[in-house]
Computed example of a mutant assay.
Amino acid sequence: MSTASVYPQNTEAAFRYAAELGYDGVELMVWAESVSQNLDAVKALVRKYGVPVQAVHAPCLLISQRVWGADPVAKLERSVRMAESLGAGNVVVHPPFRWQRKYAEGFRDQVAELESSSHVIVAVENMFPMRADSFFGRRDAAVERLKRRGGPGLGLSAFSPSYDPTDSDHDHYTLDLSHTATAGMDAMALAARMGSRLTHLHLADGRGAAYDEHLIPGQGTQPCVEVCEYLVKRGFDGQAVVEINTQNAKTTTERASMLHQALMFARVHLNRRTIPEQPAAGGSDSEPPSSEPPASETTQQVESQQVESQRADSGDDDGNS
């Protein structure tokens, strides 16, 4: 389970949910919350809840541009070293932003060098463009427009060379099924292009909105079942990570139920162990305050609209991620 899935609760809450619901482990989203950045603090959570960190998501979101400094090269290397220290097998990273020219020019080589010197896999994730739909009308209307025209319409990629990582021929990929929905991509075709190099799955769903939805798998239009069946048939031995948006949950019990539904989907369709009959509550019914909640990938619906302003504010082509 991605720790981003419990937003607006914090990293410790994610470990608690994972332990109570029976997840195998967590993918640690490194972002502005101090605990997520602190190796010793994360190790303490692993010991407290008995839940291992199986993957680390590098701080490459726009909202985490100042986490661990402004140098994206150093941040990616630090993410790999953190994964090594935690015994995690994977680091998830996004393609570079277009204005990070030096980083983008050396990105493929850096990823390859990090993998050659470590047991950690660096799996580059598919992303999505900033779509014109996001600036007009209701969010649901963007879904209907996509259906009518049979595609996502006009969009601008903030990523180099594109939001499709297979354009850069990496050794390992992360397939995100919410991002394929937002990009209007054929998820099965992308999985086929990734082939045996698809080693990390972000299991979520989407309807094709102009923003990143991260729905519970099975609640959108993406071929989640078909992708899982494809991976099982191929003998997939990588990591499958539930990365859903639970921001609308009114209570911790409701959030636990959503996380349980996603886990059930994964267990059934990836042929994993038996699902617990009753989801744990994940705490009391009232939401505890959290001064530094972990990032959610769904925040990129806001980020994508801030790309140009962030770029202007940085004043540096090679600066922030």
Results as ranks from 00 to 15, higher is better:
164 D>I: 07
80 V>W: 08
131 R>S: 08
240 A>D: 13
7 Y>W: 14
67 V>G: 11
114 L>H: 08
34 S>F: 08
40 D>L: 10
213 E>L: 02
149 R>M: 13
217 P>Q: 07
99 W>I: 02
95 P>G: 06
9 Q>C: 01
300 Q>M: 08
255 R>L: 13
27 E>R: 08
136 F>W: 03
234 R>G: 07
53 V>Y: 12
7 Y>G: 03
148 R>Y: 08
54 Q>P: 06
51 V>E: 12
208 G>S: 10
81 R>F: 02
79 S>A: 15
187 A>Q: 00
291 S>N: 09
250 K>S: 04
301 Q>H: 07
17 Y>E: 04
294 P>F: 00
204 A>S: 15
290 S>D: 14
17 Y>N: 12
89 G>W: 01
153 G>F: 03
119 H>S: 13
246 T>P: 11
130 M>Q: 14
175 L>G: 04
186 D>F: 00
223 P>K: 01
169 D>I: 02
143 V>G: 07
171 D>T: 12
255 R>V: 13
89 G>I: 07
58 A>W: 08
279 P>I: 02
90 N>K: 01
117 S>D: 14
298 T>R: 07
247 Q>I: 00
321 S>R: 10
1 M>L: 10
281 A>N: 09
14 A>W: 05
191 A>G: 12
78 R>L: 09
308 E>A: 09
231 L>E: 14
182 T>E: 02
111 V>R: 02
82 M>Q: 10
162 S>C: 00
5 S>Q: 03
211 Y>F: 06
228 C>M: 05
315 G>I: 06
53 V>R: 11
24 D>E: 15
312 A>Q: 07
281 A>L: 15
110 Q>I: 11
16 R>N: 15
162 S>V: 01
29 M>V: 00
94 H>W: 03
199 T>V: 01
60 C>L: 14
